[in-house]
Design a protein around this nucleic acid. Structure first.
Lengths: 266, 266
DNA sequence: GGATGGACTTTCACCCAGTGAAACAGGCAT
DNA sequence: ATGCCTGTTTCACTGGGTGAAAGTCCATCC
């Protein structure tokens, strides 16, 4: 590249990606100056790159100058297959689970050291909870997180422990030893409980979703606002749904490798 | 940039975006060589840029070497607000509409000269149709498309007519004059019908969704596999749902500007 | 009212990051 | 063994990217 100063060794691509990465659930609309601050890039650089992103449709700019994520990026993001496959198969099961329990049904995968929520069914009457589709929550303080962590490679567990277990409520597990024991129990039973460790008043049960190769690729959970006994009461239902989704995934895999592809071109 | 040859005047950013743009519904997994062909970029260039995208999480690479869209991109794409707001409000209405009719309920916005489907409710028992969330269909041959086109700026209409009206079935409207008359009728009635113009055996009714400023920002439709009379029978229900969504959007806008923001950080 | 601070935009001399042909390596047909 | 395809690495060359600096616009403050 060039430029008479700045930090050499940073690729253009990394700058473009840093700009996209500056957007998050908590910051879905950003001004030019905010992007520059969040990325550490000089304002003119952000300006130039953002203009290209806008021209392409990856970002859009409001009359008042703020940037948002554009539809083009949503469209391309919706092609991400990890979640596409699983969602397509899991949604009917999740709907059944919702019908049966009227709790908050959630589906999450692990992305780095956090749980990324890829689908959620709350119905119109369910109580609001903190998770959000496309949002992230810590692994050590949620039902789905414990599942994902319990079946993650050892290095991920180490990494999470090293980073420290943030205390979110008085009931959050912050002692590494206690978490490790909990994870061992999760692996033994295939169930993870979470008793007000993320939010006071919320309890949840979660269960793993297995891919065709038996590895754990996602976690399914139900969150209710009541007493620990309820979480235990719903455990069999959640476990059954998880097994159902896993079985369906395996079946789809062996049978129709790309049966979806018949749909729509572009 | 540099490089001893190639097409000068093409920015690095445009190349990165071209790589992302190479992915589509019909091509959600691509090899290195395929990306190079689809973008017109030299293979080594794609190789280098794709590696950066993989490192960032925007793409992921399978053991066999094929690339797919990564979760990171899905996550950021899910922040696109145009669809986020509308979907959140529209989904309950769409569910009601599904309960009442058991047809395929769809929500689409206009992206350039095409209809982009942002939500779809088909239930488990509905017959399959060609649309797909994240997919595109032509404006002139679908119910939602006619709505979006009828209320689009004149230049978009001109552009679509200039590009030519592709014949998809014997019933597709391919005469510009006929389409213009149909659009005038759509504007008059607030309803668009589509009788097997996209797919033989499928008929649909669509209605506009208005933003707080009364502009048309989306279209809602129901697709059924039967006779034209059914489309007309469902018209009042679709119209009512459309008005309900529009009213709710306006109310949300004046009342709670960013009531969602209280949720989850990251 | 004019001074101050913040946001956004444009310019432009500087130069290094990006380039892609070419060569190499592996796989699979013929 | 030959051809053809894919993916990977190298490297001499150079023009696209750079960002401080200056300019513009608009609030807010004294």
């Amino acid at each position: 590249m060039a430029g008479n100063s700045g930090e050499p060794g940073r690729s253009v691509t990394s700058k473009v990606l840093a700009i996209l990465g500056a957007f998050s659930v908590a910051h879905s609309e950003l001004t030019l100056a905010q992007i520059a601050r969040r990325t550490g890039l000089p304002v003119p650089t952000v300006h130039r790159l953002a203009r290209e992103l806008v021209a392409w449709g990856g970002l859009e700019r409001l009359p008042d100058g703020t940037y948002r994520i554009g539809l083009r990026l949503w469209e391309i993001g919706s092609l991400a297959p990890q979640q596409r496959r699983i969602r397509q198969i899991a949604i009917p099961f999740m709907e059944d689970l919702y019908e049966a329990t009227h709790g908050n049904i959630q589906l999450a995968v692990r992305e780095g050291g956090e749980a990324l929520y890829i689908e959620k069914i709350s119905g119109r009457y369910a109580v609001p909870i903190v998770s959000r589709v496309g949002g992230r929550l810590p692994l050590h303080a949620t039902g789905v997180g414990k599942i994902l962590l319990a079946f993650a490679p050892q290095e991920v567990i180490d990494q999470v422990l090293t980073a420290g277990l943030a205390r979110l409520t008085p009931k959050t597990i912050v002692m590494p030893g206690k978490l490790l024991r909990a994870l061992a129990e999760v692996r033994r039973t295939g169930l993870a409980f979470c008793y007000e460790e993320m939010t006071l008043g919320s309890v949840s049960v979660a269960t793993p979703i297995h891919g065709p190769d038996q590895s754990v690729i996602a976690a399914l959970s139900i969150v209710v606002h009541s007493f620990p006994a309820d979480a235990q009461r719903f455990a069999p239902a959640v476990r059954t749904a998880g097994l159902g989704i896993s079985r369906q995934l395996a079946r789809m895999d062996s049978a129709a490798p790309e049966a979806f592809a018949r749909q729509v071109a572009r």
